[in-house]
Design a protein around this nucleic acid. Structure first.
Ligand SMILES: [Mn+2]
Ligand SMILES: [Mn+2]
Ligand SMILES: [Zn+2]
Ligand SMILES: [Zn+2]
Lengths: 144, 144
DNA sequence: TCCTTATTGATAATAATTTTCATTATGACA
DNA sequence: TGTCATAATGAAAATTATTATCAATAAGGA
């Protein structure tokens, strides 16, 4: 948020609300969900502004888009490491993966073998968190 | 294609056309593109059938969805290895990455640290192919 | 406090994908 | 090889996701 200020962006109510919602969540959220929840802090916020803010936050590396098999996307906070995510398909809990330097050798190998210059990569792990493993059928939200 | 037959699906003209187009392409294709090109082999094919066929092929592991920063998705063939892709952002050429067993240790480590059971993963590398590196500004399609 | 203008929200417009449903073509079987 | 049940198709309509417009508003520097 302060990064945005120093980048010349205004610190608006709407933006603060979106950031706050994302910070409070421990899982990924869809734009629609962010919108609904952000109204808690900025009742007048519109869905369009949510989209705009999410794009801004992605651009500045504060959040990252999560991809699924079906059409819709989610957004989750990037904390410290390289920004890759481990997603529970039961409860949507999303945590960041550390130690993706392990990918370096693979990258190097691929560059050598293909002649490509690799500029970016996307890594996403999907599974079941400890809690969701114990729920027999169709695991569901035990987190907010 | 023969997998589909043994799975009880009918081998229709439309499906054959879609598979053929995907086989002939050495890059990812969007549904719209698949539709346009598939008409070569099945002039009556509709876009809806393309969507349905792509979903079927994804389901059966024959193709995989490619994710981008912007909204739209592409589909690329899965050949032999684990199904991860290296995508040229210049010409859309898409080749499969071998050697993703390199990810095993990372997986194991993550499982131990988080308690998650990892069921699936998505890895996508983006960069510039040899040819596109030599094109100064905004690299473009030199492949079909 | 005043003023400039970046940002917003409502609305409309696009783009992407799915549903519906009557028609067609596949493939099992006689 | 012809018949038949039905899986699959295509046209059109309906949804969903996302983006563009534009007049009104609110940040924040002076
Ligand atoms: Mn990384
Ligand atoms: Mn995606
Ligand atoms: Zn869970
Ligand atoms: Zn290229």
């Amino acid at each position: 948020m302060s990064d945005l200020k120093s980048a010349g962006y205004r610190l608006t109510q709407s933006r603060a609300a979106v950031v706050r919602i994302i910070d409070e969540s421990n899982g990924w959220l869809r734009p629609e969900q962010v919108h609904t929840q952000a109204k808690k802090y900025c009742p007048s916020i519109g869905l369009v502004t949510v989209y705009r803010t999410l794009a801004l936050l992605v651009e500045h590396g504060y959040i990252r888009r999560i991809h699924f098999d079906d059409k819709c996307h989610g957004y989750a906070r990037v904390e410290l490491s390289h920004g890759h995510h481990l997603v529970c398909r039961g409860c949507n809990q999303t945590i960041e993966i550390a130690g993706t330097e392990d990918l370096r050798p693979l990258m190097k190998q691929v560059q050598n073998e293909t002649g490509f210059v690799i500029e970016d990569h996307l890594l996403e792990l999907v599974g079941l968190c400890r809690e969701c493993q114990h729920i027999p059928t169709r695991p569901r939200n035990h987190h907010g």
